[in-house]
């Protein structure tokens, strides 16, 4: 067979198609080969995109790890080294040796957990009310709750500080948990409402016919079906409570301080920042959240998209 090179023709896709047509006269076989070739190219392109995006997203995490393993005096060496030449675990050891940091860790865990519990308790009841009850002002209330999510929370700081001061809630766990819960509630309410919308009313009516009171219907019938939503909303509230900085810095006080302001307090000074130690501490404190996310991610995704497709 005469090749494209023999006649001086560039080996373009058209030329390859012509060549294949000569090689195999069967159109179905040619179509199959072309489709497989296209699929290979698409897979390669998809993998390339995934790798690029993955590097973009994961490289900062990797750089955090590299910095955390680097001694202070080499943190800003030029050119930067992708693999530490003199790795050290001293920053991680120092973190666990510091009782103040461990207290911040305890405070964060306590506040984030209480925030998740309180938010879930209130969001469940609110979501259930919005989903399964009909009353005047229901729609307005729903949109009021949603619109509060768009409000810049930092604007409330001064008012909240003065109000807490008058109520005796300043520098208390209750004050911090209440403020965090207030800002996590709107989205959690909508998550729970969306899940409750997917629970058939016939189930609730069946329970009512059997004589179950409303609270029993909620606990025994509705909540087990809404477990993914509970996990999603709880996780969101937990992470919000774990990560908040400005409210924790202002309302928690020195004894109840959580990790974000605690780390800033410890590592960011007037004159210098202990970047390697800060990176080590940041990695340690982000691990619990990452582990929880990975183990519960399918519930989180399910919770976020619940109700997006109507039956």
């Amino acid at each position: 067979m005469t090749s494209a090179a023999d006649v001086g023709v560039r080996d373009t896709r058209a030329a390859r198609d012509v060549r294949e047509a000569h090689a195999s006269p069967d159109p179905a076989a040619r179509h199959g080969r072309r489709r497989r070739r296209d699929q290979r190219r698409q897979r390669l392109a998809a993998w390339a995109a995934i790798i690029v995006l993955g590097l973009f997203g994961l490289f900062p995490i990797y750089w955090m790890l590299v910095t955390a393993l680097t001694p202070n005096e080499l943190a800003f060496q030029f050119p930067p080294q992708l693999v530490p030449s003199e790795p050290t675990l001293s920053h991680f050891v120092d973190f666990f040796d510091d009782p103040t940091l461990l207290r911040f860790l305890f405070n964060s865990a306590l506040v984030a957990t209480l925030t998740a519990v309180l938010t879930l308790a209130v969001a469940t009841l609110m979501g259930y009310s919005f989903s399964k009850f009909r009353y005047r002002g229901r729609a307005s209330l729903m949109y009021l709750v949603l619109s509060s999510q768009m409000f810049p929370h930092a604007l409330l700081l001064i008012t909240l500080f003065m109000m807490y001061s008058s109520l005796g809630l300043l520098y208390t766990y209750a004050g911090v948990v209440l403020s965090f819960s207030a800002f996590t509630l709107p989205l959690c309410v909508w998550i729970m409402k969306s899940f409750f919308d997917t629970v058939p009313d016939s189930l609730l009516e069946a329970g009512a016919l059997d004589g179950a009171p409303r609270w029993r219907i909620l606990i025994s019938i509705v909540l087990p079906l809404a477990k993914p939503g509970l996990l999603a909303a709880g996780l969101f509230a937990f992470v919000r409570g774990w990560n908040d900085f400005i409210f924790a810095l202002t309302l928690a006080g020195p004894e109840k301080m959580t990790l974000p302001p605690g780390l800033v307090n410890t590592y960011l000074g007037e004159f210098q920042t202990s970047w390697p130690a800060l990176m080590a501490a940041s990695l340690v404190v982000s691990l619990p959240v990452v582990v929880v996310f990975i183990s519960l991610q399918r519930y989180l995704v399910g919770g976020m998209v619940a109700g997006s497709v109507r039956e």
Binding site: S166, G168, L169, Y171
Partner: peptide, 15 residues
């Protein structure tokens, strides 16, 4: 009732 009767007094004090 989560709050106390008295307003907060000083920085660093428990309520």
């Amino acid at each position: 009732a989560c709050g106390t009767d008295e307003p907060n007094d000083q920085v660093g004090d428990d309520a």
